[in-house]
Design a protein around this nucleic acid. Structure first.
Lengths: 185, 185
DNA sequence: TAGATTCGGAACCATTTGGTTCCTAATATT
DNA sequence: AATATTAGGAACCAAATGGTTCCGAATCTA
């Protein structure tokens, strides 16, 4: 009955995620965003509300792709040591400077945007659950409370690592550190 | 010979530090900055270069005030337990949402601005030295290398705490956690 | 008193901002 | 073939952006 949409909403949001991830919200202007999404102004405003809403959608996209993949990697890891699974979260990225989108959003927008804060908190919780799952499977920690504590500790280290990584080299030997923290050394 | 400057450069930079600390670089426009510094456009451009340079000056001001005060607090702490000194770095601020200026600068600007990266790295190093000083005084750790390792661990936790704190409540019991990490429990 | 430099403020600049409205051509369904 | 909705692109908008220049008045030193 009508001409179908030529561009893929999901692909466009992936482009939005990537530019927001790399540049942040404020530093990304509309031309940047349109280029990354492969859209013109007309199509953009017909399909989406505004820049802020697309940013929220981009966070959801990050959750559905990067976070989900990370959790899946943790779940499917068959290394005997928990630290050998968790190390994947700390491995240097080919694109270290963009860091972690959750961390970037927490720092730049969460204090002033409750919707962003809700999403970043939810994603952080998912990561924490994934970490704790790894600990449970390998019987790390003396109790459930202790595993919660260790999982939260690793989560904090992860965000600290992501923040510091944006400002230069993080020389930390995370393999050794994780083993020590989890009592696997 | 000439009319002296009526405003205090140092006080103006303190105002700049506070607005950049709370809002970030991009989110702070010139009217915001002028208001925070108590200056008009004319005076501003006569006394300073531009917004970016004032941001760098604000980072220096943070180093000279907040970071220096933190180090001094750590050095002068006479609690017998190292964790009871380091806990001060993790105590909830009355203004938690602005977080830590170093962390904010690392995430927002360091990847694209080498001058910012150099300053944040230098301040992070100072904090780490202060932490390690606390450990040394109380004979925490089996060796110098081990103290370096523990200090770097606490530093990562600090930045993770600062990042996550901006997005909501950090429920962590840092007193207990620090004691556990440092073997003081 | 004369000279120098500050002050606050207004005015101005080109550019960019987010946002909106057109238009014609294309392409699907019924 | 008729209808509906998309596409891409141009044009436009008011507002805000960072940045600069000028002004008369004030205030210090020499």
């Amino acid at each position: 009955m009508a001409r179908p949409r030529e561009f893929d909403i999901s692909r466009a949001l992936t482009g939005a995620m990537e530019i927001f991830w790399r540049q942040g919200f404020k530093a990304t202007n509309l031309p940047d965003l349109l280029k990354a999404m492969g859209l013109t102004r007309g199509s953009f405003y017909k399909a989406f509300d505004d820049k802020e809403n697309v940013y929220l959608d981009a966070l959801d996209k990050y959750d559905a792709t990067v976070v989900t993949k990370t959790l899946s990697t943790l779940e499917n890891c068959d290394a005997p040591l928990a630290s050998d699974c968790l190390i994947k979260m700390f491995e240097p990225s080919t694109d270290a400077k963009r860091g972690c989108f959750i961390c970037n959003a927490m720092v730049e927008l969460a204090p002033d945007n409750p919707q962003v804060a809700a999403k970043t908190n939810a994603m952080a919780d998912r990561l924490k659950s994934g970490i704790i799952g790894v600990l449970e499977k390998r019987n790390i920690g003396q109790s459930s409370d202790h595993r919660q504590e260790l999982g939260d500790l690793v989560l904090h280290l992860y965000f600290g690592h992501q923040a510091m990584g944006k400002s230069g080299v993080d020389e930390t030997d995370w393999s050794t550190r994780l083993k020590r923290i989890l009592g696997e050394d």
